[in-house]
């Protein structure tokens, strides 16, 4: 009885994970559209974030949950483990990567245009920021 209920909960969670994966795929497509529509590197970074968090992190969690509950072990555990570890790494490394590339681009002379204000460029011209 209890195991039946647990199996049912697992099935429901797995299906929710699948739906999350589908939503993530749609997010990724929207991010790709954003890449096409935005004309500026710094704006595209926001589309990248949609693609990374909405389009990679959440689908990986969803697919991992699906694999955990709906695929027979040990293979299901294997896929779930790979998905979760990948999701963890994406969550901590992707923002650092975007930050690094944004900083490098700003230092290499790519300016956000149009922009209402660019305090970083101003501060670096004034010499307060190295």
């Amino acid at each position: 009885m209890v195991t039946d209920a647990l199996t049912l909960i697992g099935q429901v969670l797995g299906c929710l994970g699948l739906v999350l994966a589908l939503v993530g795929a749609v997010n990724d497509l929207i991010a790709a559209i954003g890449f096409v529509r935005f004309k500026n590197f710094y704006l595209r970074l926001h589309a990248l974030t949609v693609g990374v968090i909405g389009g990679t992190f959440y689908p990986l969690i969803g697919l991992g949950t699906y694999a955990l509950f709906c695929i027979a072990p040990p293979l299901g555990y294997y896929v779930a483990g790979v998905s979760y570890v990948t999701a963890f790494f994406v969550l901590i490394t992707a923002p650092a990567g975007s930050h690094a590339i944004a900083r490098g681009a700003h230092r290499a002379g790519y300016r956000p245009e149009p922009a209402r204000e660019d305090k970083l460029a101003k501060d670096r011209e004034e010499g307060v920021m190295e």
């Binding site: 994966a21 990724d28 970074l45 990248l48 693609g51 689908p59 975007s98 590339i101 681009a105 790519y110």
Partner: peptide
């Protein structure tokens, strides 16, 4: 920089 973040997006996309 645009190309680099495009490679990123492509890679993350294909990982999922």
């Amino acid at each position: 920089p645009d190309m680099v973040i495009l490679v990123d997006s492509l890679t993350y996309d294909l990982a999922v």
